[in-house]
């Protein structure tokens, strides 16, 4: 009984936090953007609103009271992603991060995919160096994990190598590349125009293509064995979601 009431109180606290966020924090952000940040308006408003997208994920995930097994498997996938990123530290951009995040999203679901991506972005920067790019990377990796889970659930993404590789390559260039190039523009210039966006995309396209090639390669090699291993664990320990 006491257990029950305790968890109820905690829930209401969280609801309160959500209410404060919606009623106070978001209007304050927009007001501050309009009145204070003369020249850095776009950067701050976009950064903060992007950070707010993390909050519903966190709230839903915490509210669900995930089991220990689920938590540990997510942590394992994140650790493998981080280890993969640091194992290829000598090859710039040639990293398996997005490939493993997509595999996690497909196998463990959209929410877990988002968490693996965002946590991997955050933790690998403990080894690579945090900076103003961290939230953008977290968002980029996370949203790819989320989309891969969602598209798989809808049946648009298949578990075949071809389908995964196509999605991985496209997501790397369009989603991750798009987010990171836009963020670098927002960080160094006060206003956005078509010319400077094109310049940033043009200077980033080489890196994005290498990154996409890496994602496709790693998905080609890793997708089948990794998915099999995850399936085996889910089957063996009865973790198939209802």
């Amino acid at each position: 009984m006491s257990n029950q009431s305790l968890s109820n109180r905690r829930l209401s606290k969280r609801t309160l936090a959500a209410a404060i966020l919606i009623l106070v924090v978001i209007p304050v952000t927009i007001l501050m953007g309009v009145f204070l940040w003369e020249s850095r308006k776009y950067y701050f408003i976009s950064l903060l609103i992007m950070l707010y997208t993390f909050i519903p994920f966190a709230l839903v995930f915490e509210k669900r009271k995930p089991q220990a097994r689920e938590l540990v498997v997510i942590a394992v996938m994140t650790a493998i992603t981080v280890a993969g990123r640091s194992a290829f530290f000598m090859l710039p951009q040639f990293k398996p991060v997005i490939a493993i995040v997509i595999i996690s999203g497909v196998s463990l679901g959209a929410e877990a995919g988002f968490l693996v991506g965002a946590a991997a972005g955050f933790i690998s920067n403990f080894f690579f160096g945090q900076g103003p790019w961290t939230p953008w990377q977290m968002f980029g990796f996370g949203i790819i994990g989320f989309l891969s889970g969602l598209l798989f659930q809808k049946g648009w993404l298949k578990r075949t190598k071809l389908s995964l590789c196509l999605f991985g390559g496209a997501a790397t260039v369009l989603i991750y590349g798009g987010i990171m190039n836009t963020s670098s523009v927002l960080m160094i210039t006060p206003t956005i125009n078509k010319e400077i966006l094109l310049a940033a995309y043009a200077s980033g396209i080489g890196f994005d293509l290498v990154h996409a090639a890496a994602t496709v390669c790693f998905l080609f090699i890793l997708s089948r064995p990794m998915l099999e291993k995850l399936d085996r664990i889910k089957l063996k320990y009865g973790m198939i979601e209802s």
């Binding site: 995930f61 915490e62 009271k65 938590l71 942590a75 994140t78 640091s86 946590a119 991997a120 080894f127």
Partner: peptide, 14 residues
Amino acid sequence: PAISLILAMTLRFV
């Protein structure tokens, strides 16, 4: 609690 546990476990796992 859950998300910070994931972060702490990952830092240990690496």
